[in-house]
Write a protein that binds this DNA or RNA. Structure first.
Lengths: 134, 134
DNA sequence: TCCTCATATACTACAACGGGAATATACGTG
DNA sequence: CACGTATATTCCCGTTGTAGTATATGAGGA
């Protein structure tokens, strides 16, 4: 049992990231995840187990279902690691500021899901430029 | 050749993260990395190759040495991914603010709106649950 | 040119991870 | 209590990634 997995090994798996992104909108049951992401049920359960034991999600029992939702702590670890490299792209400070603006809103407890497009987020850029690669 | 590796698979490897952290302080030659991180030379070279082809680092030739240094683009991708989860740890907004404060010294002209915004510390719950796990 | 340092690559073995199929467990209902 | 649904777990197997050792490439100096 790899209970000491680093945050990064957890989120390295594409399906797990998909699950996390899905849960970012609202909590979901295993079956809903399975259906929306087109994964088999055992696969979903296995990834959820990894995510749960890693502290990325937690589950609530709802009859025969389990509702999964995000837990924030581990994401902060990623953010903390990233911090040491922030000075390298300090060009986008205002993007961070915009973040603050968006963040101090209310925290919905019910799946009200007021999906507003907010403002355009920072383009991830992807500067596909010079190859290097020897 | 896995040229289409996701950012996350790259940083999932502990040694690679160590190399990146080391390069965050300043550029280094392969031998310096090898010595400081106590890794064998082929291991360092192999990881550097992965990092280089993934766009995390670039190398300069210095006589027989190669000096490696960070490239910022890919880190931004991680940050962009993380963005969708930021609202979950809004409790620590002021930590982000501190970030801004530290950063705008080294950043080009940005008239910079006043960073002091009324914060409300909306505790998004996420408090005490731990149990679960089956 | 030959030698040495610095780095890159090739090859191999091994361990971990993820998926699929089958099965087990838990819950609610008739 | 038997049954169906929802989820978890087990077993097996193919793939992938990493470390290690040995070797290749390339540049500088005698």
């Amino acid at each position: 049992m790899r209970s000491v997995e680093s945050v990064f090994e957890i989120i390295a798996e594409p399906n797990r990231r998909a699950i996390l992104s899905l849960l970012a909108s609202s909590q979901q049951s295993v079956g809903e995840i399975e259906h929306q992401l087109r994964m088999t049920q055992p696969t979903v359960s296995k990834h959820l187990r990894v995510l749960r034991e890693a502290g990325f999600v937690e589950s609530m029992v709802d009859a025969q279902r389990r509702l999964y939702r995000l837990k924030p702590e581990r994401f902060q670890e990623v953010d903390a690691w990233l911090a040491q490299f922030r000075r390298f792209w300090s060009a986008h400070v205002d993007a961070l500021e915009r973040h603050l603006d968006r963040m101090d809103g209310s925290t919905p407890r019910k799946p009200a899901s007021t999906k507003k497009k907010a403002r355009k987020t920072t383009r991830p850029n992807h500067g596909r430029d010079k190859g290097e690669t020897k």
